[in-house]
């Protein structure tokens, strides 16, 4: 594809950054209060889960894989965490241990996906759909009906402030630090190399299978971290909490400039993509759209944003 040098020099997340700034500007025009500290904190804490999920999804998409079970993993982690915290008590130590175990559950789910797709060579879309049915079944087994509350200490901390700064911002900072380190890691470079040309990567001696499996495991870990965030946000367990969020994680990744064909994209772009989806929701709300029209306007805006993102990323590869 012919490209101007200007386009080659721009960071891959530039289109989504421009879209995000436009969204915030429109939000501000529609309702200045939507840019208040309070509203921004609400936006961040609601969409932290989607940001984590998008980062996980991006890692597998880097290697030209996909994971349609992230929402189900998030749901399984949510109910496991709430059940564990209920069983182990609500001391700080018990909560930390529960969180650790819940992240382990996410990693195990990711490992299963990795084995099925990479080692047993199932097609990623259908295999991860099948595991999402399995994970949903396990979540229903752990907690048959929604509504068990999370301990007070857990959600009070997530929704609270430390030294006057909302806790959600610390989580966001931790996420940004993680992706800053990941983006410079050999792991992500190798995922991108595998996604760019799997055969060439194999021929140059890269352990392609082990790299892809580790991508799935990390995706499971990030889905679990998203599960921790959603538990903090909803303060309860619900096996079906992961319903539509899987498709949003794919949309956020594509908005962020990653190609489904692998080898292209940035983790930072996907975080911005998740924020675009969140700010579209808030814009639709603040514009005073009648409630029954909100989903349609949001759907159209996300579709338009996806098109703009793909057309201007100059990497419109199918």
């Amino acid at each position: 594809m012919m490209k101007r040098p200007f386009l080659r020099a721009m960071p891959p997340y530039l289109p989504v950054l421009v879209i995000l700034i436009c969204m915030f500007a429109l939000n501000g025009l529609a309702e200045p209060n939507s840019l208040s500290a309070y509203a921004l904190k609400g936006l961040v804490s609601t969409y932290l889960a989607l940001m984590f999920l998008a980062v996980g999804q991006t890692l597998v998409i880097f290697a030209a894989d996909i994971d349609l079970s992230v929402g189900a993993i998030l749901g399984l982690v949510n109910v496991t965490l709430v059940s564990l915290m209920q069983a182990l008590g609500d001391t700080a130590g018990a909560i930390m241990l529960s969180m650790l175990l819940a992240v382990g559950v996410g990693a195990a789910c990711g490992a299963l996906n990795g084995v099925l797709v990479v080692i047993l060579r199932l097609q990623a879309i259908v295999a991860t759909f099948a595991t999402s049915v399995l994970f949903l079944g396990l979540a229903l087994f752990v907690m048959p009906v929604a509504g068990t509350p999370a301990p007070r200490l857990f959600w009070r901390t997530f929704g609270g402030r430390i030294a006057g700064i909302p806790f959600a911002y610390f989580v966001l900072a931790a996420l940004l630090l993680m992706i800053f380190l990941l983006a410079r890691s050999r792991f992500v470079q190798r995922l991108l190399t595998v996604g760019d040309d799997q055969l060439a990567a194999f021929q140059t001696g890269l352990p392609v299978n082990s790299i892809r499996v580790r991508g799935y495991i990390m995706c499971g870990v990030f889905a679990a971290l998203a599960g921790l965030c959603i538990t903090g946000d909803t303060a309860s367990g619900d096996p079906n909490v992961g319903g539509l969020i899987t498709l949003n994680s794919v949309a956020a990744t594509v908005l962020g400039g990653a190609a489904l064909s692998g080898g292209v994209g940035t983790l930072f772009g996907s975080v911005l993509g998740a924020l675009v989806i969140g700010s579209v929701g808030s814009l639709v709300f603040f514009l005073g759209t009648p409630s029954e029209w909100q989903n349609l306007v949001q759907g159209l805006t996300v579709l338009a944003a996806l098109m703009v993102g793909i057309l201007f990323s100059g990497k419109a590869r199918a």
């Binding site: 594509v254 489904l260 989903n295 419109a316």
Partner: peptide
């Protein structure tokens, strides 16, 4: 527009689901 089918039909699903809410109301 050469949008990958997964992305295009996923975006369309969001639009149609929005239409459904409007139509049902």
């Amino acid at each position: 527009l050469r949008i990958p089918p997964l992305v295009m039909t996923l975006g369309m699903l969001g639009v149609v689901q929005g239409l459904l809410v409007v139509a049902r109301n």
